[in-house]
């Protein structure tokens, strides 16, 4: 189909062409070589377009992709900006990064999540030098990706459907242990090699990269979304993380069963029963507040 060849040539000129010949005849010669499937008339049509007009599209496309990525990966972009020069001995360009990303992993769907996945993959597979300077960057992009997914996931239950912290604290121990909980569909479980939860918390408070991990420090974390439907991460003991992850498909979790596991596997045997229960309640309320557990009121 000739139209397909023509549109394909337009795509190549807009997305993948850095330099254009200045005059029409040179562009005709260049395009004739590059686009052999086009007719002479079609080559003339394309060559008549002055490169500065085509470059408007190149600019709006890559600035648009940069804005989309910055919305969801603000913290890792700030890290790239901070450490880029040290890693690559040249200035960081957000748009330059997006162009390079597009070259390596073209955006093949009309969905933002594909672009987001491409970015995370690009950082992990192509930006190896910066990983020497900023080894937590891959964990950080994964965290931001999971936050995005969690934020947008469909779910039949939400944090606000749960018994809330103030209601929980008015119950007796027996009443608390008789409760049932559910893990909503949006919840994600992840283990990071570095404590990037603290990097992102600090970034949200200060809008700059101040707190960075100095050593590997594996962290197990769970991402839910709070009553306002914003993603929230809770760091947790690996054993509790895995126990909950293994039960995520269950329709209901008995709080008593969770408390038993907490008491027998996580609590410090030296602690009193009261201290253990207070610690358990603190963990439980952090899960409720982050929308990781939704506790039925009945």
């Amino acid at each position: 189909m000739p139209l397909a060849n023509f549109l394909s040539a337009v795509r190549e000129l807009i997305l993948d062409t850095d330099t254009f010949a200045d005059n029409l005849d040179d562009r005709v010669a260049d395009y004739t070589t590059r686009f052999p499937a086009l007719s002479p008339e079609e080559i003339q049509d394309l060559a008549k377009i002055t490169p500065d007009r085509l470059k408007i599209y190149t600019s709006t496309i890559f600035h648009g992709e940069k804005s989309t990525l910055l919305n969801h990966f603000a913290c890792s972009f700030a890290c790239l900006a901070k450490y880029w020069e040290e890693a690559y001995r040249r200035k960081f360009s957000e748009v330059g990064l997006v162009r390079a990303l597009h070259r390596r992993y073209p955006w093949e769907t009309n969905q933002t999540i594909t672009l987001a996945n491409n970015y995370v993959r690009y950082v992990a597979e192509a930006l190896t030098e910066i990983q020497n300077v900023c080894p937590w960057i891959v964990d950080l992009t994964n965290l931001e990706l999971l936050s995005l997914i969690t934020k947008r996931e469909h779910s039949d239950v939400e944090a606000r459907d749960s018994l809330q912290e103030d209601e929980l604290l008015q119950l007796t121990v027996e009443e608390i242990l008789s409760l049932k909980a559910q893990i909503p569909e949006y919840v994600h479980f992840e283990q990071f090699s570095y404590d990037v939860i603290e990097v992102i918390r600090s970034f949200h408070q200060k809008s700059s990269i101040d707190t960075v991990p100095t050593t590997k420090n594996p962290v197990s974390a769970i991402c839910g979304r709070n009553q306002k439907l914003y993603p929230r991460w809770a760091k947790t003991d690996i054993r509790l993380h895995d126990w909950l992850r293994d039960r995520r498909q269950k329709a209901q979790i008995d709080i008593e069963e969770l408390a038993d596991f907490f008491l027998n596997s996580i609590a410090d045997p030296a602690d009193s029963e009261e201290e253990v229960f207070i610690l358990f309640l603190r963990t439980l309320t952090s899960f409720i507040n982050a929308g990781i557990l939704v506790i039925s009121r009945t």
């Binding site: 023509f6 049509d45 709006t60 496309i61 009309n110 672009l115």
Partner: peptide, 14 residues
């Protein structure tokens, strides 16, 4: 979209 690549802009037609 063309060649299964998203151009992320509204590109006019011939």
């Amino acid at each position: 979209m063309v060649d299964h690549t998203n151009l992320n802009d509204l590109i006019p037609l011939p």
